[in-house]
Structures are given as structure tokens and as C-alpha cells.
Nucleic acid binder design. Sequence first.
DNA 1: CGAACCTTTGATAGACCTCAAAGGTGGTGG
DNA 2: CCACCACCTTTGAGGTCTATCAAAGGTTCG
Lengths: 236, 236
Amino acid sequence: MKNINSCLTCINENCFIKSCSPSWIQRIKGEKTEAKYKKGQQIIFEGTSVESINFIYSGKVKVFKNGYSDKHQIVKFSKSGNILGHRGINSTISPISASALDDSVICSFPRHVFLDLLQNNQDLTFNLLMFFADELYNSEVRERNMAHMNVREKTADTLCYLIKVYGADKYKTLNVCLSRQDIADFAGTTKQQVSKTLSDFKREGIIDLDVKNILILNEQKLHAQTLVHIESSYKY
Amino acid sequence: MKNINSCLTCINENCFIKSCSPSWIQRIKGEKTEAKYKKGQQIIFEGTSVESINFIYSGKVKVFKNGYSDKHQIVKFSKSGNILGHRGINSTISPISASALDDSVICSFPRHVFLDLLQNNQDLTFNLLMFFADELYNSEVRERNMAHMNVREKTADTLCYLIKVYGADKYKTLNVCLSRQDIADFAGTTKQQVSKTLSDFKREGIIDLDVKNILILNEQKLHAQTLVHIESSYKY
DNA sequence: CGAACCTTTGATAGACCTCAAAGGTGGTGG
DNA sequence: CCACCACCTTTGAGGTCTATCAAAGGTTCG
């Protein structure tokens, strides 16, 4: 793709590449590729070889693992500035798939280039290490939640997580458009159960359901539906 | 504790401290403490401040998170040479608890000393980064398994995992002594369900149950009970 | 031997997955 | 512009799975 932007002037200030020295950022400029993905298009395929480490320049992405037959388990929702594909950094084949939830632009570095970066930028390696620690924390919280929570709690927890990641606009509308199936694939249940639970929440005045949007009316009450009182909330 | 061994002569060759330069290992020698824990004794308490990063010199340890009331979710089983408490490296309070499954000896470095090590030993940081990637992989496999598997599959998966971590002796006896509750806390079910499922496996000739031991008669058949045919097995 | 604890097994009730049908929504082409 | 189709959502009914309760049998240890 032409007109590739330099990471030095990238607006995504939270991107890990910013941890590298300017000289190294300059050096890898030519190695970076950018690709556009349409909403719904798959970016990474679980089980295929890991060719690159990627960053979300713009857009929204779901990261998921294959389950039974055509079932998926969504393990993370990501957005602009986030690293993508780092789960494959110590593997030749990708442990996860990723799909665009919106039209998205993805920056990619060949895996060996990124490893070069790590070897020569202590700050990058250290920051990435701390990031992995947070990712592990989140995943283990979810491991516990999947095992202990009932459908109502998992659904509420999913909404709280989505608020944390994507936020809500001034009308309290969740800033992401997901199908019931997507919500179920993250919550660890079925689309019908999600539909029923969301109807319950609406009846109780906790949320409101627009045509395609979810309005958060009472975030505190939503939190109270989860195990959050024990110690739960995700790091982000 | 007196007579603290040097990491340079430690028999645990897979310990991450071995990634440090000899001069640094020498330098931190005086910072290391060793402590003995009796079987059943708790080593780390979730929610308390993270004072140190630890290594298991000898023994076996379960790592778990608090759930509802007095329920636990075991997220990992560890053994000699393994790092312990690294989940708290990017946090002031510990996200997990840990208890000794056997009499164990634990080596500890103050957190700031370990962070010093990271800043000055690129290999250590890099190796730990790759390790965290594997830990994340395992946790996300489990996240999927907790959400998708039924009790029978989760129980079989737990046994496969335990074989991988602790192995079995020449009589195929699993090299670790766990209560049904421990197995349930890892599998994400109840002790009664574990008991019933193990009885099923025994009836089917997949395992045999001694007084306190589990004999693995047919590991292949055990694997076949899980989702492993999709792509599942843990990294270890 | 007795007490405490763990394991096994059965019975029961409730939660949740699946199936099914009806109602919405969006896109396409006549 | 409307009709039609495909797809998603909602809701209900039915059946299965599993957590819980309960009781009996084992095991360990003082």
C-alpha cells in the first residue's frame, strides 16, 4: 500500500512501537505494511503460520479461538492502537483468529523484524512484558468467570467489559455494534440466552435496546450483577 | 534461613534466573531468601501486596483465584524450577493465591530486585516475555474449555494436563496427590461430579483408582474425551 | 476406638442448551 | 417503491446436564 505513515507521527499514542528509539522506528519504516479490512473480514486465521505482528491503526477487532464445530470463543475485543497477533509471538502457528468488527486498517511488521526490535529496544520488551502480565490477568479472571458465573452474570460482565474497552457515547450508547452471537461468544453462552437476558435487563431498567444499539442506563446496577464485589474488573 | 544455595549451582536448570549473567546472579545472592512450606500451607494470598517474585526450589504448588464465597478457581499447577508470583509483576496487589500441595521450598527475591534484574538482563526479559506468551496461550485455551466443555470433557482435560505437568511413575500413577475438590477447582465443576466422572472412567477402563492415587491406563482414550482434536493441548 | 474429613452414590430441582416459530431489519432487484 | 429474500432477534417449550442435598462408606490420625 502506498503512502504508508511513519510510526513517529502516528496518532495512536498508546501503540507499543512508541517505546522504540526513533532511530529504530526509522529503520523499520520500510518493513511496515498496511492493509484495509472490511467489516466482517477475517484478519488472522487460527492454525496458520505467524508471519507478522500487527497493530490496529483504526477500527475494531474481535480475537477468538475455535471451539466445537463452528463455535467460537471470543477472548478479547481490541481497538485502534492495540497490538494484534502478539499471542503468536512464541509460536510458529497462530493460536487465535481475528476479524474486523468495523472497517479497519492494520499495520504489520514481519515477525522477525519485530523480534529484532525486541532484541534492541529494552523498553519495548519490558513494556510488552508488563502488557502480557495484564493480558494473563484478564484471561485468568475470565477463566474463573466462565467457570463460576451463571448466564446473567456473564452477560452483565460482558457489557461491563465492552463499556470499558469501547466506551459509550453521550447518549450512553455502547460504541460498538455486535450481534447477539458475538456477545454470546464472549460471555460463553448462546445467542438465545443473551437475547433473553438483555430483555430481562431492559425490563429492569438497567439497559435499553434500540434497533441495533445497547443503551446503558445504569452501569452501577450492571456491575452489581457480576462477581465484581469479590475482585474482578479487567485491566485496560 | 541459613545456608542459602547459590542460583549458580541450583539443580533446577529450567529456572529463569539461569538466563541472567553470572555476575548478576552473584550480585543478587544476598537478596535471596528461602522458606519452607508444609503441605497445605498457603504461600501467596490474593489481594495482599506483592513483595517478592518467587521460584519453586522443590515441591508442588497450586495457583488459584478466589471465586464466590469459599470457592476457588485453580489456574495453574506448578513444580520445582517454576517461577511463582510473576502474575503480580505489574501490580501492587497479588491477583492470585498459591498453596503448597507437598512440602515445598520457595526461593524469593524482593520485587524491586527482580525488576532490577529485568532491566539489566535482556535475555531474562526476553525469555520471560515468551513464557508469558505461553501462559497466556494456556489460559485462553482454558477460557475456551471452561466455556465449551461439559463435565466429562473438563475432567479428562484436567487429567491430561496433570500428566503433562507432573507426569506419571512407572506404574502409570499420577505423580501428585490431589483431593477431588482440587481437581474440581481446576476443571471448573464440583467434587461430586469429579467423583462420578472418575468412576465412569474407571468403569470404562480408562483409569484405575487406588486408595489415594489415580492410575492412567489409557492416556490416548483420555485425550479423545477432550476437545483436543480441534487444537487444544497446553504448552509446558 | 472415635472423630473429622474425604469419597462415593443416588435423588432432586433448577439452569441452560436446543429446537422451533414468529417478528424485525436490511438489501436487492423487478 | 414495493416485494422478496436472507439474516438476525425474540420468545416459548422441552429435554438434558449439572449443582446441590443427603446419606453411607472409607480413610487418617490422635
